[in-house]
């Protein structure tokens, strides 16, 4: 294996529009190995498009170019749809935003957790069931048997999010792309889910690309933080170095976080 993890150099994504090609992401370069990398930016900064590009899930019309765009040495740029299907779920997994809409309302939780295994070659039904039950317990759903037979409508948001984690990690992917995994949850559940994800990242030796608009939240879990603005990387730095950010944009994002010290005061607003 030549190199480990996700390697991106000069990634550019454009989309067709009525007035010609418009750029969504420009010359993005970063890599994700085993640790947790946070990709932070305001809405429209291109972070979700970047996340979907890593799984080849952008609309067909989007054009993706890069000097290097590979995972574990495998080139992701000109992957056929068939090859993509064997990468998705098995090598790279996606953690969606809102678990309530991301679970199929017609399928039981057990079926949705087992699906990842079914698609990647676990042919024995009882094997799949055992692994799914084991995974449901590991994400903290202790009543795994009941959850396995439940429909998404019968679960709370927090439970659904845990079930979603189980569905994505049951096949032990090497990289998890989490696209705003907590924005549909309240503050306390957010921290729980992120600790769970970082725990799994450590235990499974899995890379975690955390996409978020919440700099304050992800900085508690990520090792490195990449700040995106209007499709470009504004700054990349260690999470511990956020207090000494060089970019004024990063500084203003960082200052805009609410905390105990700023309680009762007006937070600074972003100025262009």
């Amino acid at each position: 294996m030549a190199e480990h993890g996700l390697n991106i150099r000069n990634l550019t994504i454009t989309a067709p529009s009525a007035s010609g090609e418009i750029g969504i992401v420009h010359n993005l370069s970063f890599s994700v190995g085993r640790g947790i990398v946070a990709l932070v930016g305001e809405s429209g900064s291109g972070k979700s498009t970047t996340a979907r590009a890593v799984l080849g899930l952008n609309p067909e019309q989007f054009r993706v170019t890069a000097d290097r765009f590979s995972f574990d040495g495998e080139d992701l740029l000109d992957l056929s749809e068939k090859r993509w299907r064997s990468v998705r779920g098995r090598m790279i997994a996606l953690m969606p935003q809102d678990p309530k809409t991301a679970l199929n309302p017609s399928h039981t939780i057990g079926r949705q957790v087992e699906e990842t295994l079914l698609l990647h070659g676990t042919s024995s039904r009882s094997d799949r069931r055992l692994q799914a039950l084991d995974m449901l317990r590991r994400v903290g759903l202790t009543d795994a048997e009941r959850v396995h037979a439940s429909y998404p409508a019968q679960m709370s948001g927090g439970m659904a999010q845990r079930a979603m984690i189980a569905a994505m990690l049951v096949s032990r992917p090497k990289l998890l792309v989490a696209d705003e995994p907590t924005s549909a949850l309240d503050r306390e559940a957010q921290a729980v889910v992120l600790s769970l994800l970082s725990e799994f990242s450590r235990d499974l030796g899995m890379g975690l690309l955390l996409i978020s608009h919440d700099l304050a939240l992800v900085s508690r879990f990520a090792e490195r933080v990449i700040v995106m603005r209007a499709g470009r990387i504004e700054e990349e730095l260690a999470a511990t170095a956020l207090d000494d950010a060089r970019s004024t944009y990063t500084q203003s994002l960082w200052r805009a976080r609410p905390s105990a010290e700023t309680y009762g005061q007006r937070l600074p607003v972003m100025d262009e």
Partner: peptide
């Protein structure tokens, strides 16, 4: 266009499976 379809794709499901197994029951 639903989120769960994106998730099914992210698991590695193909179009036929998505249409017949995921979308049709809904």
């Amino acid at each position: 266009g639903q989120d769960y379809v994106m998730v099914a794709r992210a698991k590695g499901a193909g179009r036929a499976r998505i249409v017949l197994v995921h979308a049709l029951p809904n």
